[in-house]
Write a protein that binds this DNA or RNA. Structure first.
Length: 757
DNA sequence: TATATAGTGTTTTTT
DNA sequence: ACACTATATA
């Protein structure tokens, strides 16, 4: 593409960002300011105008999905050569580098990648080994500390030097033991992927230079969410050619809990004084009303780079605010609105996103969507790959692939039941420790382990022989075939089939889905390897698998929504204690944490193109307790004139920020808004002042079934059956039915759509 | 060794 | 409300 052609499609600021090809560049890109567009054009410009070879370009994105999108957009522009560009997430990039050079760090190229579950079991085994009480020392807390240390590139040795208090010392020891175990198991956790790559480069400057030569032009997206380790990695790579272009928005920094260092972006100009700074403040995404609301909310944060987004877009509708009795009503309203608008032909399902602060909130929406038969997709939550049956199958594959991964061996040694219990395992374990060999090796020579009965030894040998057979077969066998072997020859699926419960059935379905994922991987990858498949499985984010073509409502956390946009957005659970979360309100430094929550709110608002609805419940069930929920302060930071309160819901609103803390002049107003429910938790018996908003869906919610015990009913799948019992299960009626040939099933009345015959 | 049961703690957000 | 753990029992 010609220079003119590339530049004429951009605004002045974007153009600046594109032509500054040499040296450090900081692009401060507000939400919806066409930053991806700028980046894509910059890559095209580098290749077609500056003449940079595509192989010398590295672009780092936040998710695999964003990487794919960027690559295909570049592809559309330059036609060919885009395969040579490296577009990748930090984690994928590091794995690729590490696989090639793992031997230099004492690992093999088959190293496993540990997820949070694996980390937890490893730490548990360490605590057991050290005879530490898991009640006194919480493995999760320890892992949190270790993770932060790794984000900051603090090694166990350094950690021990820095932390000399009792707990700190303990954590230091555990950190050290944990790293030793990981190495023994030939495994790395997520944080290691970055930290070990940095270590590799620092120990081997010659290797670093190879990559510096390769990646002469670098771009880092979502720069505000990089942590110290990632910053170090980028700096190392950019040291030689200094062609580093970072793109970010300090107002959208929402991953501090994961080690994101906002100073990386705020201090970029200090580290690179010669940096060209470009500001993209024109928004192409949202209506004036939505953008103004976002501006007003984020204005309440201190310590940010001052900016104010503007747009030439239409004024649009006001931001809708609706309050409800409780979470059920809230979910009912959202589903009702979506359903109504889609039926009227105004929008499609995929135009909507329902956003919430915590994954736990998704359940209510899911239930209502099912009842209303709205097509939806929940992003995140319980990850497919963290389901038990999937983890079991993957543990077999990891055991086959990585001979040193004892953690996986111990997971599956008695799954399905082989009569190998805790007593046997601990004997093998101490034998392994005494001999300085791996658990698996020890199990292989079970006959020599003192104190083991002949029958126990036989069971162990049976297992190790089985693994050996699979391992031998793995060579030259397709991954999907190997996986099928595992599912059948272990008897895992047989065992599930015997259970004959709906749960077991869905587990089998999940296993089959895993097999088809393996098939997909084989089809797409030119050189499929078992390690490669396991790696893809470990690094895939839930958002990466969202089908963009599907016509479904998307449900996700505000965090997952980053980088996305939708014509219509519902921000739900806009309540004090939920959003901002009570964790942030009660933190040691609440100001900081609440500012992070406010940025999250800003991210949410700016996802909306045309329509934004804020919803809140007055009461919410939290851990089984009903809690009164005042309206979120963020809602009150939006000026009154930008808000549409709805006809029935006209609660008093303020155009300014209320004084909420003390009595003062705002006390009356405060009570009106907060519903007089400030102390939480508080049980309130209240009457519904907003009848109208409360009605939709609720009638469907809990209808007494049109049949009773003894009746014959028909089910879509199980056919005819006899109703044994109908029980009031709170939200819904629980029906027990005996289906001849299928067994006795329990199901929710509104869910199962049973018909009386 | 495997299973049923009571008791206990837990929740923010994710690559 | 729910999941996980420790304990008792077969």
């Amino acid at each position: 593409m010609e220079k003119q052609e590339i530049l004429e499609r951009l605004n002045e600021e974007q153009r600046e960002a594109v032509v500054a090809t040499e040296g450090p560049v900081l692009i401060l890109a507000g939400a919806g300011s066409g930053k991806t567009r700028a980046l894509v054009h910059r890559i095209a410009y580098l290749i077609d105008v500056t003449g940079v070879s595509p192989g010398h370009i590295l672009a780092i994105t936040f998710t695999n999905k964003a990487a794919d999108e960027m690559r295909s957009r570049v592809d559309d522009m330059i036609g060919f050569g885009s395969q040579e560009i490296t577009v990748s997430t930090f984690h994928s990039l590091c794995v690729r580098i590490l696989r090639r050079n793992a031997e230099l760090l004492g690992f093999t190229r088959y190293f496993s990648i540990y997820d949070t579950d694996d980390q937890l079991s490893l730490m548990k085994s360490i605590l057991r080994q050290k005879n530490l009480d898991p009640k006194m020392i919480r493995e999760k807390a320890v892992l949190g500390r270790i993770s932060s240390a790794k984000d900051e590139l603090v090694t166990p040795e350094k950690y021990k030097m820095l932390n000399t208090d009792y707990y700190g010392k303990r954590v230091g020891e555990l950190y050290e033991a944990y790293q030793t175990k990981l190495l023994e198991n030939n495994a790395m956790d997520f944080d290691d992927l970055i930290a070990k790559t940095v270590e590799l480069f620092e120990k081997h400057p010659d290797l670093l230079e190879v990559y510096q030569e390769r990646f002469r032009y670098m771009m880092v997206d979502e720069y505000q969410d990089t942590n110290t380790a990632q910053f170090r990695l980028v700096s190392l790579l950019a040291e030689k050619y200094r062609n580093l272009c970072v793109v970010g928005d300090d107002d959208q920094s929402i991953y501090k809990f994961r080690g994101a260092n906002i100073r990386n972006i705020l201090g970029f100009e200090k580290v690179f004084p010669d940096a060209v700074v470009v500001r993209l403040e024109r928004n192409y995404r949202s209506t004036k009303h939505i953008l103004e609301a976002a501006n007003e909310v984020i204005r309440h944060n201190h310590g940010r780079k001052d900016k104010r987004l503007w747009t030439e877009n239409a004024e649009g509708a006001k931001v809708k605010l609706r309050r409800f009795l409780n979470g059920f009503e809230e979910a009912g309203y959202v589903c009702g609105e979506i359903s109504r608008e889609v039926r009227s032909g105004k929008r499609r399902y995929r135009d909507y996103a329902v956003l919430y602060r915590t994954n736990a909130q998704s359940r209510l929406f899911e239930e209502k969507m099912l009842m209303a038969s709205l097509p939806y997709r929940i992003v995140g939550g319980i990850n497919f790959y963290s389901r038990r049956e999937i983890k079991d199958m993957l543990a077999y594959l990891k055991t086959i692939d990585n001979a040193r991964d004892d953690l996986q061996v111990m997971r599956i040694i008695n799954i399905p039941k082989r009569g190998i219990g805790a007593a046997t395992i601990s004997k093998v374990l101490s034998y392994a420790e005494a001999g300085g060999i791996s658990f698996f090796e020890a199990a292989c020579s079970a006959g020599e382990i003192p104190g083991l009965s002949a029958s126990a030894a036989k069971k162990l040998t049976g297992f190790t022989d089985f693994i050996a057979v699979l391992r031998a077969r793995a060579e030259g066998r397709k991954i999907s075939e190997l996986l099928k072997d595992v599912t059948t020859e272990t008897g895992y699926v047989d065992e599930l089939e015997k259970e004959e419960t709906e749960e077991a059935e869905s587990r089998i379905e999940n296993i089959n889905e895993l097999i088809s994922k393996a098939v997909q991987y084989e089809e797409k990858e030119p050189e499929p390897t078992l390690s490669g498949f396991l790696e893809e499985v470990a690094l895939i984010a839930d958002i990466d698998t969202v089908e963009t073509g599907d016509d479904r409502v998307l449900l996700m956390t505000l965090h997952s929504a980053k980088g996305l946009e939708f014509p219509s957005v519902f921000m739900t659970g806009m309540e004090e204690g939920l959003f901002p979360s009570s964790m942030s309100i009660n933190a040691e430094r609440p100001e900081e944490e609440i500012e992070e929550e406010r940025r999250l709110c800003y991210v949410g608002i700016t996802r909306a193109k045309e329509s934004l609805t804020l919803t809140a419940a007055r009461e919410r069930m939290i851990r089984g307790e009903v809690t009164a929920s005042p309206l979120s302060r963020f809602v009150r930071e939006i000026p009154r004139e930008l808000v549409d309160l709805g006809e029935e819901n006209a609660v008093p609103m303020s155009g300014r920020v209320l004084n909420l803390s003390g009595r003062g002049a705002d006390a009356g107003m405060r009570d009106a808004i907060l519903g007089g429910a400030r102390k939480s938790p508080v049980r309130t018996a209240y009457q519904n002042p907003y009848k109208k908003a409360a009605v939709p869906m609720s009638s469907i919610q809990k209808a007494k079934p049109a049949f009773e015990a003894g009746d014959t009913v028909r089910h879509v799948k199980f056919g005819e059956g006899t109703v044994l019992e109908i029980k009031d299960g709170g939200k819904d009626f629980l029906v027990t039915v005996d289906f001849p040939g299928w067994g006795v099933k329990k199901m929710y009345a509104s869910f199962a759509k049973l018909k009386k015959i």
